[in-house]
């Protein structure tokens, strides 16, 4: 006979996330889980499969593909979806460009990060999704720290941070008008360390770029960026080889890597505990442009 075991923080966070996922699946007509192949979305997809096992997921996964990805991540994405035997929708920024919905940026600082919003909102409209699960955490960024678990988006996909619905206890008001949707964040209360500790506990595999590897890089704005065909370099941005890993994966044009020799989950966890730089501070070039860069993007419908 088993006895009551001591609960860990991860047990509580896991139970909370599963509760949120089940609640959304039961209440919303057409949810979708946004899956990038990054560590947070992998944890999210894993929690979702646990929430409904042994049955399959009652919703598909969707990747908003900028076309500027790390190949290792796309490889992992396809492997993972096949492994869990679920359906993946790919919404492509390149298609949005081809259709004239958005215009590709050019030059050395070109990024498709912003363009993703249009592709995402178009896909939501096309598939009539009324809820998108996202792996965002409140510890990531100032604007995210303010967001509800069931975060309302109007018909234009906009977030109104000054007028969020009250959300007392774990009771979620899931009512929507046609054309509106929710962004649902089951990992709201997780930290970067929780994510790694959970990956370790559950034995999850990750794209190889999360672990130390040799890569051709160059320095920009004090950060190490991966050299890639689609990234135009400024004069003086010479490439060199370093042993690095990524703390987050996103569009390769605006995601930086850090020097590291951590090649296992345990070593990454140890490094993360010691780190004096936040995940976004270490990885995101796009947030340095203005104080409220993330809030502005989120208001417009970004992840």
């Amino acid at each position: 006979m088993s006895t009551l075991t001591e609960l860990s923080t991860l047990d509580v966070l896991e139970a909370e996330a599963v509760h949120i996922i089940r609640e959304c699946a039961a209440e919303c007509e057409r949810p979708v889980l946004l899956f990038s192949g990054g560590k947070d979305s992998i944890v999210l997809a894993h929690l979702a499969t646990k929430a409904f096992a042994p049955a399959g997921l009652p919703f598909p996964l969707m990747h908003v593909d900028t076309g500027h990805n790390f190949p290792e991540v796309i490889e992992y994405r396809d492997w993972y979806v096949n492994e869990i035997d679920e359906r993946l929708i790919v919404a492509s920024v390149e298609d949005s460009i081809a259709q004239g919905r958005v215009q590709d940026e050019t030059g050395p600082r070109a990024s498709r990060n912003r363009l993703q919003t249009t592709t995402l909102l178009d896909a939501i409209a096309e598939h009539q999704f009324d809820a998108c699960f996202g792996g965002a955490r409140r510890d990531e960024e100032r604007a995210r720290a303010k967001e509800r678990v069931f975060s309302h988006r109007d018909m234009f996909g906009q977030w109104d941070p000054r007028n969020q619905r009250p959300e007392p206890w774990s009771i979620y008001n899931t009512k929507l008008r046609k054309g509106e949707h929710f962004r649902v964040f089951p990992l709201s209360n997780w930290t970067e360390i929780d994510i790694w500790a959970y990956i370790q506990r559950e034995g999850l595999s990750l794209p190889s770029i999360y672990f130390a590897h040799e890569r051709e890089v160059f320095t920009r704005d004090g950060m190490l960026m991966a050299a890639a065909d689609f990234v135009e370099r400024l004069p003086g941005e010479d490439t060199f080889t370093e042993t690095v890993r990524f703390r987050t994966v996103g569009d390769a044009t605006c995601t930086a890597c850090t020097l590291s020799t951590a090649s296992t989950v345990e070593q990454v966890l140890a490094e993360t505990r010691e780190s004096d730089v936040s995940e976004r501070g270490a990885s995101r070039a796009d947030d340095k442009t203005s104080e409220a860069a993330m809030e502005d993007r989120k208001r417009g419908g970004y992840f």
């Binding site: 604007a143 720290a145 303010k146 941070p161 104080e291 409220a292 502005d296």
Partner: peptide, 8 residues
């Protein structure tokens, strides 16, 4: 923590 535009 006061990270929103309007808050600042």
């Amino acid at each position: 923590t006061d990270g929103l535009r309007a808050e600042r």
